[in-house]
Amino acid sequence: MSEQDILNPKHMPHDPEKATLEGKNKFMGFWFFLGGETVLFASLFGTYLALNDSTNGGSSSEELFGLELVFIMTMLLLTSSLTSVYAMYHMKNHAFKKMQIWLGITVALGLGFLGCEIYEFYHYIHGEHFTMRSSAFGSAFYTLVGFHGGHVVFGLLWIIALMIRNARRGLNLYNAPKFYLASLYWHFIDVVWVFIFTVVYLMGVL
């Protein structure tokens, strides 16, 4: 079945992710889902903003946050967003190998980001004794940033699963929408991070 759908440039749609009805549905549904995710993160941001001064006598954001690590994390995630654009660029050109390579770089950068975040949390918990139970600020901080981190983990697992699953068989009309959706998801993670580094970290040390 899938053999017939292997793309080759002679009879290929220039938007492989939207060439089938299933692809169109997925594309549309995933964007709608991202609309819902926006509200989800807005609720978390709102909660954080309502509670970011409620330190209950414990550590405050000014005392905790160091901008160097956040800057590195931001650069890693921003770059990974560009690399996943490159991956999709090669998908549309049906260069499967190149797509896989760029996705691999994206995953590597994402892992780097995740490593930094784990280090950061570890440092706060063990170095500063600042946990989810320290104060309402602590609860709000870990929940907001942790939700984003959870999204990063899920996105990485998703992309890795797609890469391994399709490593041998290449690109076809059945899996093109899957790759495209995973990349959309990855961009959305970056969108959320832009607000996190602005609202939580930069405005937090101000």
């Binding site: 909660t47 309502a50 104060s135 929940t143």
Partner: peptide, 24 residues
């Protein structure tokens, strides 16, 4: 999100809604 916050408060010791921890 509301249910998550409630869950963290009730089951994992967070303080979103607990004034004693600065919650609201």
């Amino acid at each position: 999100v509301g249910l998550f916050l409630m869950m963290f408060d009730r089951l994992f010791g967070a303080g979103f809604f607990d004034p004693a921890m600065g919650g609201n």
